[in-house]
Amino acid sequence: MTEEETVNESGWTPGRGRHVLLAVHTGRQDIVELAQRSAARLQRAGITVRVLDDEAEALAIDGAEVVPPDAEAARGAEIVMVFGGDGTFLRAAELARYTHAALMGVNLGRVGFLAETEPEAVEETLLAIERCEYAVEKRLALEVDVFDADGSSVGGTWALNEASIEKTERSRVLDVVISIDGRPLTSFGCDGVLCATPTGSTAYAFSAGGPVVWPDVEALLLVPTNAHALFARPLVTSPDSVLSVAVPADGNRARVSADGRRAIEVPIGGRVDVRRADRSVRIARVHSASFGDRLVAKFGLPVRGFRDSRPRQHHQGPGHELPPPNVLTRDIVGADGDRSAEEVSGAVAHDD
Score class of each variant (00 low, 15 high):
residue 228 H to I: 00
residue 30 D to N: 11
residue 125 T to S: 15
residue 128 A to S: 11
residue 52 L to A: 14
residue 238 S to E: 07
residue 132 C to W: 12
residue 311 P to N: 05
residue 161 N to D: 03
residue 184 P to M: 10
residue 221 L to W: 09
residue 23 A to T: 01
residue 209 G to V: 08
residue 24 V to P: 03
residue 159 A to R: 14
residue 257 S to M: 10
residue 290 S to I: 01
residue 232 A to E: 09
residue 311 P to W: 03
residue 341 A to T: 13
residue 323 P to T: 12
residue 322 L to T: 05
residue 311 P to K: 13
residue 148 D to I: 03
residue 140 L to T: 10
residue 287 H to F: 15
residue 106 V to F: 04
residue 136 V to Q: 08
residue 219 A to L: 08
residue 11 G to S: 02
residue 214 W to V: 13
residue 324 P to W: 05
residue 269 G to H: 07
residue 341 A to D: 07
residue 322 L to S: 06
residue 61 I to K: 12
residue 7 V to D: 00
residue 246 A to S: 14
residue 285 R to H: 13
residue 108 L to P: 00
residue 14 P to V: 04
residue 342 E to R: 14
residue 213 V to E: 10
residue 136 V to N: 05
residue 254 A to V: 04
residue 141 A to C: 15
residue 180 I to W: 04
residue 19 H to M: 10
residue 108 L to T: 06
residue 129 I to W: 00
residue 216 D to T: 13
residue 230 L to E: 01
residue 249 A to P: 00
residue 196 A to W: 07
residue 339 R to T: 06
residue 116 E to W: 03
residue 130 E to S: 03
residue 61 I to W: 08
residue 332 I to H: 12
residue 346 G to P: 01
residue 68 P to T: 10
residue 224 P to Q: 09
residue 130 E to T: 07
residue 44 R to E: 07
residue 134 Y to I: 07
residue 247 V to E: 03
residue 234 P to V: 11
residue 269 G to S: 06
residue 256 V to N: 04
residue 239 P to V: 07
residue 11 G to W: 02
residue 178 I to P: 01
residue 128 A to L: 03
residue 34 L to K: 14
residue 63 G to D: 10
residue 3 E to V: 13
residue 203 A to L: 07
residue 326 N to Q: 13
residue 197 T to G: 09
residue 55 E to I: 02
residue 35 A to T: 02
residue 336 D to Q: 12
residue 113 F to W: 12
residue 6 T to D: 06
residue 126 L to F: 01
residue 17 G to Q: 08
residue 72 E to S: 13
residue 345 S to E: 05
residue 161 N to S: 09
residue 11 G to D: 00
residue 12 W to R: 13
residue 26 T to L: 00
residue 219 A to H: 12
residue 50 R to Q: 04
residue 163 A to G: 14
residue 98 Y to G: 09
residue 89 F to I: 11
residue 96 A to D: 04
residue 61 I to F: 09
residue 159 A to D: 10
residue 71 A to Y: 02
residue 109 G to P: 00
residue 282 R to H: 13
residue 276 R to C: 03
residue 338 D to P: 15
residue 67 V to L: 12
residue 250 D to L: 10
residue 144 V to T: 15
residue 162 E to Q: 10
residue 82 V to W: 09
residue 99 T to M: 10
residue 273 D to P: 01
residue 196 A to H: 04
residue 19 H to F: 14
residue 309 S to I: 12
residue 71 A to G: 07
residue 17 G to S: 14
residue 82 V to I: 14
residue 58 A to K: 12
residue 202 T to E: 08
residue 73 A to Q: 04
residue 293 D to I: 02
residue 260 G to H: 13
residue 282 R to S: 06
residue 14 P to R: 06
residue 123 E to L: 12
residue 49 V to Y: 11
residue 146 V to R: 06
residue 150 D to I: 00
residue 77 A to N: 08
residue 212 V to E: 01
residue 201 S to A: 10
residue 70 D to H: 05
residue 27 G to I: 01
